[in-house]
Simulated assay, not measured.
Amino acid sequence: MLVWERPEPQDRPVPAPLSRERIVRAAIRLADADGLDAVSLRKVAAALDVGPMRLYGYIATKEELLDLMVDAVYSEIQPVGDDWREVLHSLAQSIRQAAHQHEWLADLIGGRPQLGPNTLASGEAVLAAMAGVDLDVVVPAVDAVNAYVIGAVRREITERRAERATGMDKTQWQVTYGPYLVRTFATGKFPALSRMVHDGPHLDADQTFRTGLDFLLDGIKARVSG
């Protein structure tokens, strides 16, 4: 029986009350502070001031705990809108916002299917908004949006982590590597790249995400209307 269906043991108020929700919230606090490496059943038990063995009545493995953590965050991802485009846009923005608040989410989304109730509710809202559209369009359209968001979010989180690890933000990186690019482009071997760097738009992360998402939604609209 999966963790979503397995009943919790009856709580014992002494020495400390316990529930799956308390366990998951403690794990999320650890992950938010120090990443997924900080999450283990032993460390979560310590944070809750209980023995590790007490947790096994609620959660059998760390993989179950990670699944529960993802689903808990999906309670924050509830796409809304008056039509399918607004709902898909809301879905994308909500996932991105959640990943910025919980960076570890970027390491877990896009793996095996998530089947928790909050995740299913999010998927239900998206599919309900696309009712009436042929499923041959709906399924790849939703997959494309999810793939775009996962890729964009992972890139952004990777850049954040790199900045923290190196101590170099985007401006400092440009100062450090700019002279090398100037010399390289001066050889004339990379005219297309040189034109892009000199004449192309320089968008920030928010603008890049919104522009790419609009391109994708425009393409979906063409297929829906076709």
Rank of each mutant, 00 (worst) to 15 (best):
L2R: 02
R6M: 07
R6H: 01
E8L: 13
P9Q: 03
P9Y: 06
V14W: 05
A16R: 15
P17Y: 04
L18I: 09
S19W: 05
E21D: 13
R22C: 01
I23D: 00
R25T: 07
D32R: 13
G35Q: 11
D37H: 12
A38K: 13
A38L: 11
A38F: 11
V44A: 14
A46C: 02
A47H: 10
D49Y: 02
D49T: 10
P52T: 09
M53Q: 13
L55Q: 07
L55P: 05
Y58W: 05
Y58C: 06
I59W: 01
A60R: 14
T61E: 02
L66R: 14
V70L: 08
V73M: 00
E76D: 10
E76K: 05
V80Q: 06
G81E: 08
H89P: 01
S90R: 12
L91T: 00
R96N: 08
R96D: 09
Q97S: 10
A99K: 04
Q101Y: 01
E103C: 00
W104H: 02
L105V: 03
G110P: 01
G111L: 01
R112C: 00
Q114F: 03
N118T: 04
N118G: 07
E124T: 12
E124I: 11
M130Y: 02
L135I: 01
V138A: 02
V138N: 00
V138G: 02
V139H: 01
V145G: 01
A147K: 11
A147E: 09
I150L: 01
V153I: 06
V153N: 01
I157A: 02
R161S: 06
W173I: 14
Q174Y: 06
V175L: 13
T176A: 15
T176C: 11
G178S: 08
R183H: 14
T184D: 10
T187D: 14
P191Y: 03
L193Y: 12
R195V: 06
M196L: 05
V197H: 00
V197I: 04
H198E: 15
D199L: 15
G200Q: 06
Q207H: 11
F209V: 14
T211C: 06
L213D: 14
L213I: 15
D214L: 10
L216V: 06
L217G: 03
G219T: 02
K221Q: 14
K221H: 13
R223M: 11
V224T: 10
